[in-house]
């Protein structure tokens, strides 16, 4: 069983720097990526949950690039590594708003990263999903475009 504070296999492809630099930043970071949130989950809820592991320095909510509404992820930064580790250990894989949330190391927030990277503005994973997820806008974006009624009356 891998220790729960180990780095996961995910690597941000937009990281500026080499793979080893990226891994070093991840190992020293006090910032976490939190995923699989409901679009309706608020910053206040995240603050309440993550404060139980330590003093939260800042929360950056992930937003839809165009609509500027929450799109299901955020970054949580602590003051010290050990408190971020506590969140990896005790919060990762537990529920918030009835959803199992994912907590993973992040190399540190940079302006611009708060926006979804999908074509339609949200997270990429919400483009291709084929399941119905009420907490994340129903069906995936591509699928819902296909099944949406044609409103073009020309």
């Amino acid at each position: 069983m891998a220790a729960s504070v180990e780095l996961s296999s995910y690597r941000d492809q937009h990281f500026k720097g080499s793979r080893s630099e990226q891994e070093r930043s991840l190992r020293e970071s006090c910032t976490l990526y939190v995923g699989n949130l409901s679009f309706y989950t608020t910053e206040e809820q995240i603050h309440e949950l993550f404060s139980r592991c330590g003093d939260v320095r800042v929360i950056v909510m992930g937003l839809d690039k165009y609509k500027k509404t929450p799109c299901g992820f955020c970054f949580v930064e602590y003051y010290i590594r050990s408190e971020a580790e506590a969140a990896m250990r005790f919060v990762n894989g537990t529920r918030l708003d009835d959803r199992l949330i994912r907590v993973d190391w992040d190399a540190g927030f940079i302006e611009g990263r708060q926006y979804g990277r999908g074509k339609t503005g949200g997270q990429v994973r919400d483009e291709y999903r084929t399941d119905y997820d009420a907490g994340r806008g129903g069906y995936g974006k591509l699928l819902s475009q296909k099944i949406a009624p044609n409103t073009d009356n020309r």
Partner: peptide, 11 residues
Amino acid sequence: LPTINYGSILI
């Protein structure tokens, strides 16, 4: 330990 540690084990 912090309360959440005990809670997470119970969960």
